[in-house]
């Protein structure tokens, strides 16, 4: 279980560029939750994920993972429990290393790196199997450098790497946004499959409202660094894109009004 209590994050604190990215966020993610996160640009979606992953240090508040306080843990310390797929397909894999080397690195996520051989013979069969299910033929190119793969292939590989060693939380930051529609659909299907199969707890940021409604059991809308809508179960399933848009206008109205007032003044 992941619990955020009253966390805030401000960029460029105390300068003229001060930006409150997260404001007093409290959120409890139950085991097995698959949450989709929507919201406008700058709403704080990515910041929220990066905060959970320990990339950003928070201003205040607490983050508990399975009742352990991980608020001040650094990125690599908390990584043992967290699988991540980034928006940019280039981010999740190491270009000059082989496919199998990338998988082996991921399989040791959060573990001590020793002087044991980087890839054990027994792992090769396992990697062959997991690559095969992607249906991209990568199992026959295991010693190819990742740089030779397309963006979609790399993203599918990153997803595999993120879940090779079961993470307590899977963070997906618009992981299909940079892909063409067909590839995006494939990667999304693969995501649902893997999450269901391993019964993972996942948070997925998306700009696609349809996906946000169709996927997962819970939906969160963010605006100006706050969670403005949190819906799950039956209520979420019955949502329509129009409902979301209306809700979106409703919450952002105030800020629009404020902007207008500024202009009129």
């Amino acid at each position: 279980m992941l619990k955020l209590s009253n966390i805030s994050k401000t960029f460029n604190l105390g300068t003229i560029n001060e930006k409150k990215a997260l404001q007093n966020i409290s959120l409890t993610v139950n085991d097995g939750d698959f949450i989709t996160i929507i919201g406008g640009n700058g709403a704080g979606k990515s910041t929220l994920l990066n905060t959970i992953a320990g990339v950003y240090s928070i201003d205040c508040g607490h983050i508990y993972l399975d009742n352990n306080d991980v608020s001040l843990k650094g990125e690599h310390e908390i990584a043992a429990n967290i699988g991540r797929v980034f928006q940019d397909p280039m981010m999740g894999t190491a270009t000059n290393l082989e496919i199998i080397e990338n998988l082996a690195l991921a399989n040791r996520r959060g573990k001590r790196r020793t002087l044991a051989w980087g890839i054990k013979a027994s792992e090769k069969q396992q990697y062959h199997e997991v690559l095969k299910r992607l249906g991209l033929g990568l199992e026959n190119r295991m010693t190819s450098k990742v740089g030779l793969l397309s963006g979609g292939q790399r993203q599918a590989l990153t997803l595999l790497m993120a879940t090779l060693q079961k993470p307590k939380i899977l963070l997906l930051d618009e992981h299909t946004a940079a892909l063409d529609p067909v590839t995006a659909k494939k990667v999304l299907e693969l995501t649902e499959e893997i999450v269901a199969e391993q019964n993972l707890t996942a948070l997925m940021v998306t700009h696609n409202m349809k996906d946000a409604i169709a996927i997962g059991n819970r939906l969160i809308m963010m605006n100006q660094g706050q969670i403005v809508y949190d819906v799950s179960g039956e209520e979420k399933m019955n949502l329509t894109v129009e409902d979301l848009l209306r809700k979106f206008e409703e919450v952002s109205h105030e800020s629009f009004a404020n902007d207008r007032m500024l202009l009129v003044d």
Partner: peptide
């Protein structure tokens, strides 16, 4: 970045 996210 990737390596750090893998806990190194």
């Amino acid at each position: 970045k990737m390596v750090r996210s893998l806990g190194v």
